[in-house]
Amino acid sequence: MPKGFVVIDKERCKGCGLCVAACPFGVLAITSELNPYGYAVAGVIAPEKCTGCAMCAQMCPDVAIEVYRAVKEGV
């Protein structure tokens, strides 16, 4: 179970790629998937590498990213 989990709102995403550039672990990439507005949206390509640092969400200009973190066991 990866430390982090990213949810991308594909309707809001405009495929600008700032999240891809911000992610230190290569979790994200711009995919070939088009949203209803014609943008090629960001997607999770390496979910296992996500630490839930939320740097992608911090840089997202479209508030299209939600970030979740695994609850540590015993906490």
């Binding site: 179970m1 982090g4 989990f5 309707e11 809001r12 405009k14 495929g15 600008c16 790629g17 700032l18 943008y39 839930g52 939320a54 969400a57 911090q58 200009p61 479209d62 508030v63 990213i65 939600e66 970030v67 979740y68 973190r69 695994a70 609850v71």
Partner: peptide
């Protein structure tokens, strides 16, 4: 999935409307 808590979610004072700004 179960076992995850939010770290970052959309601010409550924002509506559901998509931003009209250009990409990036």
């Amino acid at each position: 999935p179960a076992g995850y808590v939010p770290v970052y979610t959309k601010p409550k004072s924002l509506s559901e409307a998509r931003f009209t700004y250009c990409p990036g």
